[in-house]
Design a protein around this nucleic acid. Structure first.
Length: 524
RNA sequence: GGCGGUGUAGCUCAGCCGGUAGAGCAGAGGAAUCAUAAUCCUUGUGUCGGGGGUUCAAGUCCCUCCACCGCCA
């Protein structure tokens, strides 16, 4: 197809402890938008998402629901699969850590680490919190009102002692620091990298990491010692290589796609991805992913989403209220690169109306309906372009894509959207300046040219909107009679302009205005 | 407590290596009427968190203080 480099992008795999919420939706949409952009831009893309299903917490939750862990996981995993369908996610594979292929990969990497001498048997003892899935030092604990010891999170802790395998993380302190130094783009945004570097630089360096448990059995068995199951994070992180065929490092997928171009994750799990994962990979003698991108969280009406506040939004709520493409667009538009974003119904309506309905949707509609009424329902024949025409066409054909691509390269989707909207504004300004409705009587030839220019700009806008609003962009392209195999970004050029005389279907509005009805529905 | 970040128009944010502030939305006025009552044009006197310093010149560099956030302890 093209000589552009393959592109491997992943979401974090979702922990199946609970149902999908808006945060999961945001992450998978962000990743999907990036994956679609790269595909349309000529890259061979592999987009992996999935679910993380092991660990004591899942086992406990399953038990509380009177379900076997596996059945419980099946149930929740199905909800994530369903969410991806609803959100029109274009993943190439959906991995579950309970799949046989993943057991094979996890045990293989374990064996590699062992072979390398980086895993040894020791003993873990300390105060353990099931809820946090973590041990705490005596000095980290607080005392609650009943005089009981609790974790910093407030979770109950119990004294536990268990034999455990350890990963020699301490041996990687300097190697990791050197890697961060040599690859400043490895962790983004910068503020997250600063945090990681200062953590790794801590006095005494990194401590070895407990990587197995004997106190429960819901996990991948440790090879040659099945009293132990592997630590969930070692198991979970390995999904990124399982997905491309590990342990078969000679497979086509592995050779093509590893190392991954980017792991898209939430800022809360940066440490696992920016410290543990590269250390594991170094130990297994595998190349490291090129980038860890940590996104922020979505607040709702200015407040953190939380069950106790009762303001948890499900992806379904938004999709029902605004539509799939609108939900995708709003989240991408309103959450700046790596920062937290805010969702509010008022803002959603303002944004969706002003960007999608008023500017872009209306531009397409006014253009197409004038063509339908005045040009015999076919692409009009242009007749010589003026400077004004050329300026707008150049913007759409030549300048827009590089500007947008530059922002995508940096995960600045909100900025990319601004660049796209700028073109839409320019086109609306042009249409008023040229006033084709007035030319109808005075100069029909010129009217045809103006409408042709507009239709051509709408075509380019629809093409570049595809990653963000795939279904709506497709509808716009259908209305312009653009064939499905002519929708990649190489068609954003004057060389692939609309052919005059081609019959066009009846225009239909693509981005409806949101009114109070939607607001009510969403709030309820 | 340590490290890092943020604080710029009503709202969300841009402002690279210093040269006396910008964009979108919202608001106001006008034009137009092809279109989803959508569009276009015009319109922002903001102590750029406070104070001090360096400089001919500082959101933009230095110091300090305040507020908020993140990571670590």
């Amino acid at each position: 197809m093209s000589s552009k480099s393959p592109y491997y992008i992943t979401t974090a795999i979702a922990y199946v402890n609970g149902a999908p919420h808006l945060g999961h939706a945001y992450e998978v949409i962000l990743t999907d938008v990036m994956a679609r952009f790269r595909r349309l831009d000529g890259h061979q893309v592999f987009f992996l998402t999935g679910t993380d299903e092991h660990g004591e917490k899942v086992a406990t939750t399953a038990e509380r629901n009177n379900m076997a862990p596996r059945d419980f996981c099946d149930k929740i995993a199905a909800q994530f699969v369903e969410m991806d369908e609803i959100l029109n996610i274009s993943h190439d594979d959906f991995i579950r850590t309970t799949q046989p292929r993943h057991y094979a990969a996890s045990q293989a990497i374990w064996n590699e680490l062992t072979k390398r001498g980086d895993i040894y048997l020791g003993k873990y003892e300390g105060w353990y919190s099931v809820r946090d899935e973590a041990y705490f030092g005596e000095d980290e604990l607080n005392t609650d009102e009943n005089g009981k010891k609790v974790a910093p999170s407030g979770a109950e802790v119990t004294w536990k002692e268990e034999p455990s395998y350890f990963f020699r993380l301490s041996a990687y302190t300097e190697k990791l620091l050197a890697y961060y130094e040599q690859h400043p783009e490895f962790i983004e945004p910068d503020t997250r990298r600063n945090e990681i570097v200062s953590f790794v630089r801590q006095e005494g360096g990194l401590k070895d990491l407990s990587v197995s448990r004997t106190s429960f059995d819901w996990g991948v068995p440790v090879p040659n010692d099945d009293r132990h199951v592997m630590y969930v994070w070692l198991d979970a992180l390995t999904n990124y290589i399982t997905g491309v065929g590990y342990p078969d490092t000679n497979s086509d997928t592995f050779k093509t796609f590893w190392p991954a171009d980017v792991h898209v994750i939430g800022k809360d799990i940066i440490r696992f991805h920016a410290i543990y994962w590269p250390a594991f990979l170094m130990a297994a003698n595998l190349p490291l992913p090129k980038k860890i991108f940590a996104h922020g969280f979505i607040n709702v009406e200015g407040q953190k989403m939380s069950k106790s506040l009762g303001n948890v939004l499900s992806p379904h709520d938004l999709v029902n209220a605004y539509g799939v493409d609108q939900t995708r667009y709003f989240l991408m538009r309103e959450v700046p690169h790596g920062q937290d974003g805010n969702f509010s119904h008022e803002q959603a309506i303002l944004r969706l109306n002003s960007d999608l309905a008023n500017s872009l949707g209306n531009l397409a509609q006014r253009t197409l309906s004038m063509i339908a009424k005045n040009c015999g329902e076919v692409v009009p024949q242009p007749d010589g372009f003026t400077e004004d025409d050329k300026a707008l066409l150049d913007l759409a054909h030549i300048r827009m894509l590089p500007l947008v691509r530059h922002e995508y390269d940096r995960f600045m989707i909100h900025r990319a959207i601004e660049e796209i909207m700028r073109v839409s504004y320019e086109a609306n300004s042009y249409i008023d300046r040229q006033a084709p409705w007035g030319l109808k009587k005075t100069d029909p030839q010129r009217m045809n040219t103006v409408l042709y220019v507009l239709a051509e700009v709408v075509r380019c806008l629809a093409l570049i909107m595809q990653p963000l609003t795939p279904a709506s962009a497709a509808r716009m392209l259908e209305q312009l009679a653009v064939a499905e195999n002519e929708r990649s970004f190489e068609f954003i050029s004057s060389g692939h302009s609309l052919k005059p005389g081609v019959k066009l279907p009846a225009p239909q509005g693509v981005f409806p205005r949101m009114g109070d009805a939607q607001n009510q529905k969403a709030a309820g």
